[in-house]
């Protein structure tokens, strides 16, 4: 029983870490709070669902198509909505303050667009649903795939930030945009790539979610909230701590619900959310980046 819970906690922790990673990238490098982040998870999930049910394309392939699709969407949002505004300092400051509202608008459009196109019915499909048992844990193949992909992406992101020179540019932009520009980092380019990567990661997470859960046009919002909780716990803009915080939330949620009951789930999540913001707005593990 304990092993099973532990496994469930690790799976949901990995998923939270992955979803939050994308949100954190966008906040870190652009200082924009993307409240539509969970809706990209929804887009990814529907891409995988329709590819599988209509065209018989494996979700593993959809991981790639979704990456391209969501990155392209990120690029579009960047060019159409954000680029001109980020260009001038005065507009950029206003944009930061208003990003929540812009992305809320986007979120409403995506949710209702999906609901109009696909109806609000919840949908699901079966993929890799054979059960494997080991060490007192029963897991479906899809869960293991989720875990593997999430681990690969989060570890890959950490390694990229640690070892690759482009990763250092990203860290520099997250830390201090103006100073990064002075030492020759192409800030605009880093921001553009960050938003594409952030959107793509959310899409990939959506493909993974669609293999293990029912999907609906309005499934994104809980992911947005979870991602916000994780990112706040880790400290806004702090990529590595955010990944750790994803697992913290997975554990707290899984064990908290197991010890009490499912009715406490939302109270637990929002309680952590409010508590951390009030008591440690810089995050549990260290320093968040300056909101500027």
């Amino acid at each position: 029983m304990f092993q099973q819970l532990l496994f469930a906690a690790v799976v949901s922790g990995a998923l939270y870490a992955l979803v939050a990673l994308g949100l954190n990238l966008v906040y870190g490098s652009l200082r924009l709070l993307n409240i539509a982040h969970g809706d990209l998870v929804m887009i990814g999930a529907y891409t995988a669902f329709w590819s599988f049910t209509l065209l018989g394309i494996s979700p593993v392939v959809s991981l790639a198509t979704t990456t391209v699709l969501c990155a392209a969407f990120g690029f579009l949002v960047y060019v159409v909505l954000l680029k001109r505004q980020l260009g001038s300092p005065a507009l950029a400051q206003r944009l930061e303050a208003n990003s929540l509202i812009i992305f809320y608008g986007l979120s409403v459009i995506l949710q209702n667009g999906a609901s109009l196109a696909f109806s609000a019915t919840s949908r699901g499909y079966q993929f890799l649903d054979g059960v494997h048992s080991f060490a007192g844990v029963s897991a479906t193949g899809s869960m293991l795939l989720l875990l593997g992909v999430a681990a690969a992406i989060t570890l890959g992101a950490l390694a990229f930030l640690r070892f690759h020179v482009a990763g250092w540019s990203l860290l520099a932009v997250i830390e201090r945009k103006d100073a990064a520009a002075v030492v020759g980092v192409n800030v605009e380019r880093v921001q553009m790539i960050s938003i594409c990567a952030g959107f793509a990661i959310a899409g990939v997470a959506g493909v993974l979610v669609s293999m293990t859960q029912q999907i609906t046009p309005f499934m994104g919002f809980p992911f947005t909230i979870a991602a916000f909780v994780v990112v706040i716990m880790g400290g806004l803009g702090n990529i590595a701590a955010g990944i750790a915080a994803g697992f913290v939330l997975g554990f707290v949620e899984t064990f908290g619900v197991a010890l009490t009951s499912a009715t406490y789930r939302s109270i637990l999540i929002y309680g952590i959310f409010v508590g951390v913001l009030l008591l440690r707005p810089q995050g549990l593990f260290g320093k968040a980046v300056q909101a500027r």
């Binding site: 809320y104 608008g105 986007l106 409403v108 459009i109 609901s115 109009l116």
Partner: peptide, 17 residues
């Protein structure tokens, strides 16, 4: 209803920007 919400979302973006 969905079209209404989508228009609302679009209005919000247009007005803010």
């Amino acid at each position: 209803p969905q079209a209404y919400m989508m228009i609302l979302g679009a209005l919000l973006i247009v007005f803010i920007l």
